Lab assay of single mutants.
Amino acid sequence: MGFKLLSKLLVYLTASIMAIASPLAFSVDSSGEYPTVSEIPVGEVRLYQIADGVWSHIATQSFDGAVYPSNGLIVRDGDELLLIDTAWGAKNTAALLAEIEKQIGLPVTRAVSTHFHDDRVGGVDVLRAAGVATYASPSTRRLAEVEGNEIPTHSLEGLSSSGDAVRFGPVELFYPGAAHSTDNLIVYVPSASVLYGGCAIYELSRTSAGNVADADLAEWPTSIERIQQHYPEAQFVIPGHGLPGGLDLLKHTTNVVKAHTNRSVVE
C-alpha cells in the first residue's frame, strides 16, 4: 500500500471513529477524501466538511520552486461564519470567499490569524475590503508590521502568557507558548472536538522541520505538551499544512522538532 493511500485511509478511519463516538456532533463529509496538494491548482481553494458547521479550507501556493498546501478553518456561528487564517495570499483568499459563498452561503463576518507569517495573514486586506472584521493577538499584529505583512485590524486580548485561553464565538483560542513562531495560536472547536494546530503542528508525513527561522526550538516541545494537557479530548487535529489526523500529530511534531534540534547540535 502506497504512503499517500495509507495517509488518506488514516484520515478516513479517524473521521469514521469520530462519527461513531459522537453521532450528534459529527456529520463528516462523505463526498470524498481530504484534498491534497496535487489536486488543488494554485489560485483555487477546496472546502472539506469535518463536522456539522465545521470545515477546513485548503489552498496551495508556490514557494521556492515548489507547491505547498495550506489549511485553515471555518466555523459556523449562528447565521454567520468565523474564518481562521487566510488562504495564503490575496488571490487565494478572494477564491476562498467565493467558494464559501458557493458552498455554504453564509457571510464571513470575523477572521482570526493564528500567527504573523504570510500563509496566515496574506489576504487580510481582501477580507477587510469584503467587510470582514480581522483579528490577531497584539504580538501577531506587531510582528506582521515588522515583517511588512498585512496586519489584522483588531487585537485579541488575554493571550499574552503561555497557557492563556479565551473564548471567541464558537471557538476557544489558546496560546501554548512559542513553537513554530513566538505568537502562534491554537484554535479548538469544543462542539466538535476539532483542534486546529496551525503551523505549530505537523502532518504525519512530514519528517523535516522546514521553516524554523522564527521558531523557538527549545520551547516548542513544552508548548505541545500544554496543548495535549489542555485538549486531551480532541479527536480531529488539523495541521497548518497537509493531512489531518488525531492527537498523534502532536507527538510526531515533537519528535521531528527534537530530531532537528539534535542534528543542529551535532553539526
Rank of each mutant, 00 (worst) to 15 (best):
F3D: 06
Y34E: 15
I84C: 03
D118G: 07
S208C: 06
L97N: 00
V37I: 14
V237C: 03
H115A: 00
L247D: 09
L156G: 02
T222A: 12
S162Y: 13
S160L: 12
T182D: 12
A95T: 12
G72S: 03
I201L: 12
Q228M: 13
Y202L: 15
Q103G: 10
D79C: 05
I238W: 02
T207H: 12
V237W: 03
V265I: 10
Q61N: 06
S137L: 15
P239G: 02
A165V: 13
K251S: 11
S27N: 07
T86M: 00
G131W: 06
T222N: 13
D216I: 09
E39R: 11
L247H: 13
E203V: 05
F116W: 15
S155H: 12
V257W: 01
D248Y: 11
I238C: 01
T109M: 10
K8R: 08
L127W: 00
P190R: 13
Y202R: 07
F116I: 03
H154Q: 11
Y202Q: 15
G2A: 06
F174Q: 02
L10A: 10
K251Y: 15
L6T: 06
G65N: 10
A129C: 00
H252S: 04
G2E: 14
L73F: 04
G198V: 04
G245Y: 05
G105V: 07
E150A: 02
S205K: 09
D248W: 07
G123F: 02
Q235A: 10
Q49K: 10
R128T: 11
V45Q: 03
H230M: 13
A209I: 07
S7P: 08
H115E: 00
L73R: 00
E33Y: 07
R76T: 09
E203S: 03
G32R: 08
V126F: 10
Q61A: 13
A213Y: 08
I17G: 13
S31K: 09
V108M: 03
G197M: 01
A178K: 11
C199S: 03
S56G: 15
P221T: 12
W55T: 02
N255D: 10
W220P: 02
H230N: 12
G122C: 06
L81Y: 03
I84S: 03
G123E: 04
E39V: 12
A218H: 13
V126E: 06
N211Y: 07
I104E: 00
A192H: 08
G242Q: 02
D77V: 03
S208N: 11
V37P: 15
G122F: 05
S137K: 08
A165F: 13
L97Y: 02
D77M: 06
L247A: 13
